[in-house]
């Protein structure tokens, strides 16, 4: 597996750059001065415990939410300042696989995958058909082309969502938890597919996951988010051997350690006696 070493990355201009990003939900500070760079053409993982703000980072990159302060630059565009048509044009270059597959329930698998093509190109029907079937073949679901989303299992739906995200050959693909709900074979297939798409089309991929095992061989660089900031970055091998207690705890899945398992709460005794 070819991996871009972090040294050569530093010389490139980053494709995605989040600088000093602060984001709050009411009084809960989710991201607290986050800095993140992703090199063009790499596969990067964002790891972290549940509720730490991984999906929030994705929403910031897609422009669904705006940061309270800081900047988000993708391919030279200030995403946090985009709106209207400019935002739409930016989004046409993205492929996004959401945490729950979000297929349109009133359309067949075929129409779901064809939707972005129909909407943004004027390709003739036979070409659309070829395009859609090729993508479905890649996720192993060409046979499900006529099914409706309600007839699919959770794992099948995720793979259709993946085909839909890739159908317009985006420059940047964002995956929110692509492996949850997949059996080991499908997970391995999706993992290979993410890598393959990345190499064949030279896209940049950001994979949000807490599946530490699945990272090996898939990603070039991983960032672990804890407490609204990046706690550690590096290749999977680096992180596995990282000696800091926080990273060790996360990588090995230990319940006790510096990473909080609990959502911020008042003292338990006080709460119970209140």
């Amino acid at each position: 597996m070819t991996t871009v070493s972090p040294d050569t990355q530093a010389s490139h201009k980053p494709f995605i750059e989040l600088r000093d990003v602060v984001f709050r939900h009411d009084r809960l500070t989710v991201l607290d001065g986050l800095n993140l760079k992703v090199t063009q053409g790499s596969v990067v993982a964002i790891l972290g415990p549940s509720g730490v703000g991984k999906s929030t980072i994705l929403k910031l990159i897609t422009g669904q939410i705006k940061p309270e302060s800081g900047s988000i630059t993708v391919n030279g565009l200030r995403v946090d300042q985009l709106s209207g048509n400019k935002l739409n044009n930016y989004r046409k270059t993205l492929g996004v696989m959401l945490q729950n597959s979000a297929l349109l329930t009133d359309m067949s698998v075929f129409e779901n995958v064809a939707l972005p093509v129909r909407e943004h190109t004027s390709l003739p029907e036979p070409v659309i058909r070829r395009l859609v079937l090729t993508k479905l073949q890649a996720v192993g679901l060409r046979g499900a082309v006529a099914m409706l989303p309600r007839e699919l299992s959770g794992g099948m739906a995720r793979r259709v969502a993946l085909a839909r995200a890739l159908v317009l050959d985006p420059a940047l693909v964002l995956y929110d938890e692509p492996f949850t709900g997949l059996d080991p074979i499908a997970a391995a297939t999706v993992s290979k597919l993410i890598r393959h798409v990345n190499e064949a089309l030279n896209v940049t991929s950001v994979v949000i996951t807490h599946d530490v095992e699945r990272m090996q061989g898939l990603i070039d660089c991983a960032h672990i988010i804890i407490g609204g900031k990046i706690a550690a970055s590096g290749t999977p091998a680096d992180l596995v051997h990282d000696q800091s207690p926080m990273i060790m705890q996360f990588m090995q899945g230990l319940p006790d350690g510096p990473v909080p398992f609990h959502y911020p709460a008042p003292d338990l005794a006080e709460d119970l006696l209140a």
């Binding site: 669904q64 044009n89 989004r91 993205l94 996004v96 945490q99 349109l104 329930t105």
Partner: peptide, 17 residues
Amino acid sequence: GLMKATEQLDALELMAI
């Protein structure tokens, strides 16, 4: 409402629709 709850409306926005 269901399309909103199941992120279908978000997905459309993300496809620039």
